[in-house]
Write a protein that binds this DNA or RNA. Sequence first.
DNA 1: GCTGAAACAAGTAGTGT
DNA 2: ACACTACTTGTTTCAGC
Lengths: 161, 161
Amino acid sequence: MHHFDYIDQQILLQIREDARKPFSQIAEDLKISNSLVHQRIRKLKEQGVIAKAEFVVDEKKIGFRTKSYVGIRLREARYAEQVVAGLKKIPEILECNFVSGNYAIFILIFAYDNHHLRKILYEQVHHIDGVAGTDSFICFDTNFKRPVSLEALTKKDVYDQ
Amino acid sequence: MHHFDYIDQQILLQIREDARKPFSQIAEDLKISNSLVHQRIRKLKEQGVIAKAEFVVDEKKIGFRTKSYVGIRLREARYAEQVVAGLKKIPEILECNFVSGNYAIFILIFAYDNHHLRKILYEQVHHIDGVAGTDSFICFDTNFKRPVSLEALTKKDVYDQ
DNA sequence: GCTGAAACAAGTAGTGT
DNA sequence: ACACTACTTGTTTCAGC
């Protein structure tokens, strides 16, 4: 069980927004030494709270204009693992989850356009052994997308996982 | 319409994986000058291909153990905008999309546990004027999650958007 | 469009309180 | 747990090819 204080929270808020922000500048903002910033970030990494820093590539800008969530139904539950293995081979599928409800598997796809999406589903996904059918939820617009709130961080201890 | 070459692709692959990787080291790897790395990254930013570098915070490590996609049905289509405004006020909702299919709106929620998720839906989402009902797809497991493929980058020109 | 050198800024590690 | 110092390394700009 870890404990996070105000400094951890503020550091996270800043580096989450800009991973290349100089530690020295963060230190200045928070009025602490830059070795402390360094130390805290090292600890957050050790704890696994932050795993890596990544530059975010805009999918639309490189041609992937159709974003869609797709629910997958299986012929039988036992096919789950092998279907996941099949889905992983399709590079346009960026996320894959086991879910509760009407579908066994829920995926996120980025395709060039609707036609490309249809091709991926009909020529690849539907041919994976165990897949009974799919329902697509094509995203017309993403209204907002944001990272998890850090508000609760200093108010409670956080459990290991 | 932009054109991307091998150098752009390689730089993107590297900084996407580690946003704090020194440009000088990228230059060494690719056997180019570090001012060129600098130059290319500046251009990729100007074009909007990369917007920002972010440290990724592990939601599970800070206590958000229940991830769920939720489909929202509306009483009437005209409520869409005001429902989005209501959803935006709930910090546990990290993503919100207009979609095709059975639901008008599709959201992503991170909650502490199933009970917390239920509270968010029943005490907040269902009280937003215009919401007719919701269906939850709770993620038992995320099998994989990865960024968009850059394979196609050098093979075709990429359209503006 | 690309390189290389020089000025500047930041990251790192060790020491002390 | 934190700050200070000295040292190493990376970033950025600009003249020149």
